[in-house]
Every structure is written in structure tokens, then in C-alpha cells.
Simulated scan of single mutants.
Amino acid sequence: MKRYEYTPDMISELAPGEIFVFGSNLQGMHGGGAAYIACRKFGAVMGHGVGMQGQCYAIPTMHGGPDAIAPYVDEFIDYARDHPDLCFLVTRIGCGIAGFAVSQIAPLFARALEVDNIVLPRDFVQVLRG
């Protein structure tokens, strides 16, 4: 499996074992942004707004602020840690349609820096490492 330092800015295909991690909504209406790509290309399922589906993992970001998103990020990190055979490519969740700043979302992923099979966007890592 390919090793990444950061999540690529554009992901148009995935190798076996790579998982596209995207921001969703609780209803699983994957109509725009990375969620649309997840649905069209990587097996995200309409009506499923949380967790693994196809070659994707959905983290809801449209239902409240960072405190409401945090439990879903924690659940994701635990899932990734339990599945070391997969490589999770985290997109800039919450920083597109949901409208959050990287400085608001990146801290939710602090524990992810300790998980070898989670790859974060460059700007998330820059915020986390100062």
C-alpha cells in the first residue's frame, strides 16, 4: 500500500485498501463536495451519513459545531486504529460546504497523528503541529 505524508488535494481513484474519509450530513444526502465524489466514485450510500460504506468513511459535519462533530471523529479514529490493514485518506472535512475553518476542525483530529494508517490534509497537520 502506498504511504502518504498528507492526503492528496484531489483524489480521483483509490487503490485497494485505501478509504476516502469525507464530511457528510446525518441524513446521508451526499449531494455536494467530497460527499458527492464519495457517492459517485467510491461507494458512499445515499441515506447513510455515518461510518464505513463502500470504499469510504462518512463523518457528519452539518449538524452543529465542532463539539457536535467531535464524537464522530473520535469514533472514526477508533475505527481506523482497529483496521490497520486499511489506509484512511481524510479530506478537509467540515471545511467546505459545512463552512468551518481548518483551525476549528483540525484539533478534533489530534489523536489521529498517533495512528499510522490515518493520513490528514497538510493544513490539518500544520495546525496540529503548530
Rank of each mutant, 00 (worst) to 15 (best):
Y6N: 14
V73M: 01
R40N: 10
G47P: 14
A110H: 08
S12A: 12
M62R: 11
C95F: 05
E13K: 15
D123C: 03
T61E: 08
F76K: 00
A106D: 11
E5A: 13
T91C: 12
D85E: 15
H83W: 04
A106G: 09
A70P: 07
V90H: 00
C56V: 11
I59N: 01
P107S: 11
S103T: 15
D74L: 05
I37L: 04
L108S: 06
I77L: 01
E5L: 12
S103K: 14
M29V: 15
D67I: 11
T61I: 09
M10D: 13
R111V: 07
G31Y: 05
Y79K: 03
S103E: 15
G23R: 04
N25E: 06
T7Y: 02
Q126K: 04
D9A: 10
M10E: 13
Y72K: 01
P16S: 13
V127F: 00
I97E: 11
R40G: 06
Y79P: 04
A80I: 15
A112L: 12
H30N: 03
A38I: 06
I118N: 00
A58D: 04
D74R: 05
F20T: 14
Y72W: 08
G31W: 03
Q104L: 10
P84N: 09
L120W: 02
K2C: 06
L86F: 08
F20I: 10
S24N: 07
M1R: 10
V73C: 02
F100I: 13
G99Q: 05
Q126I: 02
R129V: 09
F88D: 04
F22H: 14
